[in-house]
């Protein structure tokens, strides 16, 4: 079994977990033990996911073209799913709320399922990507993206809860959702900044210009500005609730465009 098979099983594993969660909740067996089992099952899936990334790393070395598995769209999607799952597990642990994890899991599943559609072969690293900056740059960017993804999920939930007159009791409270929307951006924003800085350092090293206004660079800056706007609106203008939730949704749309949409514009990041 190679890492590609493992990733396929993982996608089904995540789907299975979502269904298991639904069944447990609907059958009213939302007891503490059931929730605990679900949590540890997700931790186990996360460990397998980590192993799959490690295996792919090892496989590239067995092929004689060893490099970190962060070099093309397939590998970045697998890593993206891993970072979102990590963020969701942290939220579960910190805020003791599983509804947000349940709502976030379909994103992890869709990201993993989308890898079925694209070339999964391990390819040698092209000269432009042969740099130690690769791991630092991709790692920080995607961890930041994961924070924004969690904020987005909480923001969508918050907007839904706000539109209901009597939200069901098992739903997270508005104040908690608002806190998660804000806290995850507070973590994601410095990580994105670090991602942009490492990217600029790498670009300076490889191309002689730390900033070239290439579409991906520009869109990451747009994303950065939206979240900087979010933080200032919240911290100094006292925005919260629905207003900041909408900003979080706009920010995540910018993240998605930076990640996928930019590929339709010509630029230097054409390998992702």
């Amino acid at each position: 079994m190679d890492s590609v098979d493992l990733n396929s099983y993982l996608a089904f594993g995540y789907l299975g977990w979502i269904i298991a969660y639904l069944i447990t909740s609907l059958s009213g067996r939302a007891a503490l033990t059931a929730k605990k089992t679900l949590f540890w099952t997700l931790v186990l899936l996360f460990v397998i996911h980590t192993a799959a990334i490690g295996l792919r790393w090892a496989e590239s070395y067995w092929m004689g073209i060893g490099h970190a598995p962060l070099s093309n769209l397939y590998e970045s999607l697998v890593f993206f799913a891993w970072t979102i799952l990590l963020a969701l597990l942290l939220v579960w642990r910190k805020f003791r709320n599983d509804v947000i994890v349940f709502v976030g899991m379909p994103i992890v599943f869709i990201v993993m399922a989308s890898t079925f559609l694209i070339d999964s072969q391990i390819r040698p690293l092209i000269p432009a990507l042969q740099s130690n900056w690769l791991v630092a740059h991709v790692f920080t960017c995607f961890l930041g993206y994961a924070g924004f993804a969690v904020s987005f999920v909480a923001a969508v939930l918050l907007l839904i809860v706000r539109s209901w007159e009597n939200p069901p009791s098992f739903f997270p409270k508005k104040a908690l959702l608002d806190e998660i929307v804000y806290r995850s951006i507070l973590v994601g924003f410095p990580l994105l900044s670090l991602g942009i800085i490492t990217g600029a350092a790498w670009a300076d090293h490889a191309w002689g210009a730390y900033w070239s206004w290439d579409p991906k660079e520009t869109w990451s800056l747009i994303t950065w500005m939206v979240y900087a706007g979010f933080l200032h609106a919240r911290l100094t203008r006292g925005w919260s609730g629905g207003k900041t939730a909408i900003l979080s949704v706009i920010g995540f749309a910018a993240v998605m465009f930076t990640y996928f949409g930019v590929n339709y514009l010509p630029g230097l990041h054409s390998y992702f």
């Binding site: 520009t218 800056l221 747009i222 500005m225 900087a228 706007g229 200032h232 100094t236 203008r237 910018a254």
Partner: peptide, 20 residues
Amino acid sequence: SVRTTITLLFLLALCAILGT
């Protein structure tokens, strides 16, 4: 004013989109 900062940030984001 931080209100200016927020306005400038969103304005710059919009102009940057124009460039792409």
